[in-house]
Amino acid sequence: MMMKNILVLVFNDLAIAYKNKTFFLILFIPLFIFASLNLIDGTNAEASKIKIGLIQNYAYSPEITGSIKATKLIEVTWVQNEDEGVGLLKGRKIDGMLTGNEKVNGGLALLVLKKDSLHTIAVVRSFSALQKAAERSGPDWITEINSLHEGGFQRQTLPTWIMMLVLLVGFIILPAQVAEEKEKKLLLALLQTPITEIQWLIAKLILGMSLTIIALLFLHMLGQFGPVPLTDYVAFILAGSFCFSAYGIFLGFLCRNQASARTLGVIFYLPHLLPTAMSDVSQKLSSIAPFLPSYQLYDPLQKILLEDGQWTNMFFDWSYLILLGTLLLYLSYLMMKKRWLM
């Protein structure tokens, strides 16, 4: 009898898990991991081909150019000048660029996006192996490594933390709160006062944006991220928090209860966070990530915080975030008017 009761309860719990969409989460996460692993460029970054930019007018030593041509591990892209190489590097078209090192006669400086990355390690190791094969001994070919991204490790990871917080508020906190107000009929109670649907939506939007800004202020108080270009930074933080708060409200309206909203939130959170955050270490992901709204926040933040980028040069990304947020807010408004799942 006891076993029967336990079995009945287990089946009931499974039915609840199915009803509140927890099952989708259980199936989704392994599927997402599988897809992500297939999208990342192999498990061993060292084994993949390295793309190096060389400047056409620079006189590289014949040993170096000869060794590079002889190996299949390195793919060379010739660039007109350093600016063109920097452009390719920012666009993740090459892994690094070799220029002259003014400090060491005959030495080369390697310019990379990030110093502490798998790509940089792979480039240095490949050149070290080439040098060993060509010369056996002698001074290192690469005598300096310069990073395009400025600042220390904390600052370099700041765009990832920001995105994590913005998406957390947007995909986890807000949908659950909206769904709770629907589930407990509190939203309907509020709509029995003279407030309008738009006022309620704007209040929720302000809540989401405020939570994000408080979290970011706290993050800046605790971390040592250095000074930020305030106007450009604030412009994107506001646009990002607006877009993902609107996204969260929209997700909340798609769900009847809190449990469903949390599940749906995680289902949206991971695919927006991980491919974008991992786009720096994978060329495949860097070609997929731009299709995600989260990348339109992450990439400009990287440029503003690490590459001295300016808001005015990223107007497309900014407009994209604002337009997407406005569209989602409008859809939420329509669902609210129709008393969708209330």
């Binding site: 407990k184 009929k185 509190l186 309907l188 109670a189 029995q192």
Partner: peptide, 11 residues
């Protein structure tokens, strides 16, 4: 119009 549902909907 004032509506009082069967289950109280309060915060």
């Amino acid at each position: 119009v004032g509506f009082i549902p069967e289950d109280p909907n309060l915060f």
